[in-house]
Design a protein around this nucleic acid. Structure first.
Lengths: 209, 209
DNA sequence: CACCAAACCGGACCTTGGTCCGCTTGATAG
DNA sequence: CTATCAAGCGGACCAAGGTCCGGTTTGGTG
């Protein structure tokens, strides 16, 4: 029952006018630079517009919201991570047993969080999290793995709740306020997954492409 | 190893001036009324101030932020729930085995969410969630139960991640966007807990829907 | 090239959460 | 009762995300 699915690649609308494309690039570069220079939370949308020499209207026309801009800046890394999940090496990619893949997935997300919390926090702002394309991919990925490992469980629900444990807001709280070291978070994730799904005894069934 | 602890009761500062107390009441009443009438998300802080015949400065002086105001409006129900947890009847209160109490706790939270999502959403807005007094109580409660049921686990970490599964934003997404019925969420929670911690004595295994 | 409609641009403008600060008032001391 | 002054008050003000719309650009068409 393994579904074939295309990951929602962000294809750069070919009918986009030249000036629009140029402005998109300008905005993305300016945003990335400013975010690195001053920290995401210290950069306003006006700042970005000004740095990109573009009107505020243009900025919002292109990206719709601050969260979406953050996502756009992250999109390349996000794409790489998805690639590693879907076609990469085990244990992250296909080949390992579901439990191992789930654990590897969580470790990967935690690493990404550790490197780009601010950006991810901005990207998940408001209700933006659940509506985002990456979230849909992660959700599907986890659902399939859970279903494979434990056909009797409510995989969809468990996937959502497990993903909640990998949210940026929780991460920043655990890391900064509760001062839990990265390793503890990763070990904790592994423990969580380990208790939820059994280790696969033998044959890793299908390689989900 | 059950720790005695005082729940952080919100004691109404006795040194508060008469006019201050009167304004607090006015604000709380107005807020509650407006929230019910028009829905939390359709009520601005200016609206509340105006309805309470109070300056905006006063409003913020008393409650500090929108999230804090929402929490204040919720505080009575919150207090009742805490009371039920700490001194109430089993399985929510003491007396039942940890697993049963954890399941009952989740069901209770889900019921509260179902009744007051908007308010809880506002209360958890921003990073306000993890800093709130109720969160600290829930966290402690779950940590103690987990530790009791499974001394070898990282109870603190697991408590945080399990609480993430009971967040208002996730709930509203699952209920409204994913259209999962309440019963499914409760059953899912029970399944999650059931897989994480063993049953105390004789055991009805999980009845996965 | 001349023309046109659609797409795009930019910045003025709106809303809203939150801050500031000069004025007012309640409680207490004398 | 009056003096005193910290606590409280209120509304002008600010920042920042997001919207609107009149003017401009682009790219295709005759």
């Amino acid at each position: 029952m393994d579904t074939v699915f295309e990951l929602p690649v962000i294809e750069p609308d070919p009918t986009e006018r030249a000036d629009a494309a140029r402005n998109r690039q300008r905005i993305l570069c300016a945003a990335q630079r400013l975010f690195e220079e001053r920290g995401v939370s210290c950069v306003s949308m006006d700042d970005v517009a000004r740095a990109a020499s573009v009107g505020k209207g243009t900025l919002f026309r292109r990206f719709g919201s601050r969260a979406a801009l953050a996502r756009a800046v992250l999109s390349e890394r996000e794409r790489q991570f998805q690639e590693a999940i879907i076609r990469g090496e085990p244990p992250l990619g296909p080949g390992a047993c579901p439990q191992e893949r789930l654990i590897a997935f969580g470790r990967g997300v935690i690493d990404m969080l550790d490197g780009h919390v601010e950006l991810l926090l901005a990207a998940e702002d408001g209700g933006a999290r659940f509506a985002s394309a990456p979230y849909a991919v992660y959700r599907l990925h986890m659902t399939l793995l859970l279903r494979e490992a434990e056909p009797a469980c409510d995989a969809e629900f468990l996937a959502e709740t497990l993903l909640a444990a990998l949210g940026a807001d929780l991460f920043v709280y655990l890391r900064d306020a509760r001062e839990m070291p990265l390793e503890r978070l990763k070990t904790g994730w592994a423990e969580l997954v380990g208790r939820l799904v059994p280790v696969a005894v033998a044959a890793p069934a299908i390689a989900a492409l």
